[in-house]
Design a protein around this nucleic acid. Sequence first.
DNA 1: GTCTATACCCCGATAGAC
DNA 2: GTCTATCGGGGTATAGAC
Lengths: 200, 200
Amino acid sequence: MKTRDIILKVAEEEFSKLGFNAVSMNNLVKKLDINKATIYYHFKDKKSLYNEVIKNAIERLNTNLRAVFDDKKDSNTLFRAYVNAIILTIKENPSIVPLALREFANYGANVDENFMPYINEEMNYLKMLVNKLDIKDEYKDMDIYSLYSFINGTIKTFYVIQMSTLPIGKENDLKNNSEKTLNYISEFVSNIILDAIVKK
Amino acid sequence: MKTRDIILKVAEEEFSKLGFNAVSMNNLVKKLDINKATIYYHFKDKKSLYNEVIKNAIERLNTNLRAVFDDKKDSNTLFRAYVNAIILTIKENPSIVPLALREFANYGANVDENFMPYINEEMNYLKMLVNKLDIKDEYKDMDIYSLYSFINGTIKTFYVIQMSTLPIGKENDLKNNSEKTLNYISEFVSNIILDAIVKK
DNA sequence: GTCTATACCCCGATAGAC
DNA sequence: GTCTATCGGGGTATAGAC
């Protein structure tokens, strides 16, 4: 693995854990066991390192979403596969959850215009999906972003609650079990949506 | 308004906008037009100022939730009133949204054990509510935190998307309109849940 | 491509006058 | 209860040797 990629990997974990401002270049190089100037050889500054981390995260998600549409499925199966692709992305790389929540909290202020194509690609998959579903009349005019928020907000919030060190969520067998938590919430999200908005 | 309360008010806005680490005491006193030592007279350190901010935010939410259960309503109306109490809290104080999202991203690490009674109170209202609903058999064993995540994750994610400076959500008339956005998502969340999990 | 050394700045926090 | 002045430390970033 190249130095640049190692830096990106460790930086992603740190930005996810601590947020942009709490990550210091000094601590980063300690974890990496390289010299600080080496980071500045590979990346212009802290901000562009962060931007590269975010870009990679969105690209990994889009790669998994793209695969969902590769072969023909009935629309309800497609919906479940779509949700599972998001779940798979988190399983492959849990850092993406706090990373996304922190960016949401910033109203996307750290994400520059260069990322819009990636975000638009992500939204397009959801639009394609909705077009295939046989939606009840009362949900036909539903805002696409409310559906997006339901899927992504529910999954991420549930994940951080179950993985949190606080004694919340402790009444169940999902607590601190990433695999079980993600499988459960995948089913929950798919079931609710298909029960609520799709014609029987 | 007392100095201590003014500090808390401005600190809440700043912590919400920037997150714990990005807020500096120096910038805070500039906004407040008081001396830095004055903050340290009223609060032990930066961390306890932050904790006080979070505590106040949870208390305001619980006050609004408590009011929902004051008089008798049929269970579906109660559910809509519950969701509206969350929406009302955000309308009264939008800072609570990024504040909560940042804490979620931290897996609650900045929230110490003293807050558990407040969090438990919040969860108890949801449990009381679910007990009153006439739930379909297949959702009877639903994890309470998945419902919590659905309600809170969807509302907060939708809100920050519509209020973000990025050109997402721009295809609708909710963009940058806090009032309309919150009214819309309140209806959406209530409708989905009542359609999906409650017996007709 | 990776290192040492350093410039320059802002941070949180406190002592002590008023 | 609010101020001025200051301390010690750690922050980002770069120059220049190897």
